[in-house]
Amino acid sequence: MTTIQTHCTENLRGNYNRKAIQQLIKDKISEGANRRPFYIANLDDIVNKHKRWVELMPRVKPFYAVKCNNTEPVVKTIAALGAGFDCCNISDIEQILKLGVETDRIIYGHPVKDPDDIKSASEFGINLMVFDNEHELVKIKSINPTTNLVLRILPFERGSGDVLDKKYGCLADQCEDLLMKAKKMDLNVVGVSFQIGRSGFDVDSHLDTIIFCRRVFDLAKTIGFNFNFLDIGGGFPGYSTEGNPTFAEGAKKINETLDEYFPAEENAKVIAEPGTYYVQSAFTYVLRVIGKRVSDHVYDYYLNDGVHGAFSKTITYDKKVPDFRLLEDKPLVPFRKSNVWGSTLNPDDRLGQNIQMPELDIGDWLYVPNMGAYTTVLATSFCGTPSSNIIWMASDSTTS
C-alpha cells in the first residue's frame, strides 16, 4: 500500500532548493488572489541540466523534444543555451523559428508527416526529416526530393530482440529493402535514428541499438549512401530514482559505446532528443483539497485537478500515484486508508486508491515535485477545468 510523505526528504530530485520552493508556494498562497492549482518553475534547473549534459556527453548534441513542454520561457532558455530542437509538426517548427533558431538546429523528427507540413517545413528551409516506410518516401519525394533524410529504426531490448515501440520505426530486416528503395528514388538518406520511449532509463537498450546502428551505417555504404548522422533519441531521466541508473552512469556507458562503434575520426554527427531530462525536475505542481468524504473507515479526498489536467501522463501512461507532499507537516495526525480523486465528473478521474495518508482537511495544500514533463502540454479543459498558472522563480533563489 502506497504511503504519502508528510515532508520533502532530501534526495536526488533535481537541482533546486526545496525550502525556497516551499516558501514561494506559501507566499503565493498567502496572497489569496487565486486558489487554483499552479506550477512553480525554475529555469536555473534547466540551465544546470544543459551544463551537465555538455559535461557528461560532449559528443552528443541535445535536440530538445518540444512536445515535452513547449512553454515559451522553457523553449527560449533552451534556445539561448545553443541546443537544437526535435519538432514533430509545423507548429513546433514555427515556434522555434520565431526565436531566431537556425534551421540546422532543427530536426523534423516525426516519421509520418502531414504533406502540408512537409511543404511548409521545406519552404522554411528545414532540411532534415525522419522516415520509416516507403509511403513516407514517396510523399517526401513528391514535395521536397532534395531534403536530407534520416531512417528511424525500432530499438531493441537486450537479451530478447523484442522491439520497444511498434507504432514507428523500421524493423531490422526491412532496413536494406527500404534503403534500396530510397536509392532508386534518388533520395539522400544521411543517417539513422531511434527512440527508446520507456519510463526509467533503459541504458542497455540504448547500447544495443547504437551497436545495431553501426550495422545500418555499414549496410548503407554498400548501397551507395555515405551516412554521417546518428540520432540516439530520448529516454533520459529527469531525476534519479532508486533502482535505475543515474544519468551520469548511463552517459558513461553511452560514451564508451559511441567511441567504440562510431569513433570520433569518422566525424559522424551524433544528437539526442532529450525532453524529460531537461524539464521534469524544473517544475513543481501545487494543488489543494476541495472535498472530503468518509465511508466505512475509508477517506475519500477530492483535489482541484486530476487526470484531465497535470496528471494525465502520471496516471494513464506511467500508472503511478503522484508523489504528493503536504505543504504543512501533520506529524501527530493518524494515517488513514484513502482514495484521492480529481475534480471532474469522470468516475475514472482517480489519482490514488487505497493509499495511506495522514487525515487531510478541506483547504489543505499539497505539492508534487518533478512535474515539468508532459504535464502542461496534455492538460485539457474538460468539465471547465482552467489551465494552471506558472510562477517563474527568481534565478538567484534556487541555485544550490
Rank of each mutant, 00 (worst) to 15 (best):
I4P: 00
H7V: 10
E10P: 00
N15R: 11
Y16L: 12
A33D: 12
F38T: 09
A41P: 05
R52G: 00
L56Q: 15
P62A: 10
K67R: 11
C68W: 00
C68L: 01
T71W: 01
K76L: 07
C88H: 06
S91L: 06
K98W: 00
E102M: 09
R105T: 01
D114V: 03
D114L: 07
A121N: 04
F124H: 15
G125N: 08
F131I: 12
D132A: 06
N133I: 01
H135G: 04
L137H: 11
K139G: 03
P145K: 12
I153R: 04
F156T: 11
D162I: 06
L164M: 13
K166C: 02
D173L: 10
L178E: 06
L178D: 07
L187A: 12
S193I: 04
D202N: 15
F212N: 11
G224M: 02
N226T: 14
L230P: 04
D231G: 03
I232P: 05
I232C: 10
G235E: 02
T241I: 11
T241E: 14
N244G: 04
F247I: 12
G250Q: 02
K252G: 03
K252Y: 13
A264T: 14
E266V: 01
E266Q: 12
P274S: 05
G275W: 07
G275R: 09
T276A: 11
T284Y: 01
V286I: 11
V289E: 04
Y302S: 04
N304A: 09
H308S: 09
F311Y: 14
P331S: 09
R336F: 10
N339D: 06
D348K: 14
D349W: 05
R350P: 00
Q356H: 05
A373V: 03
V377I: 05
L378E: 15
N389F: 01
N389V: 04
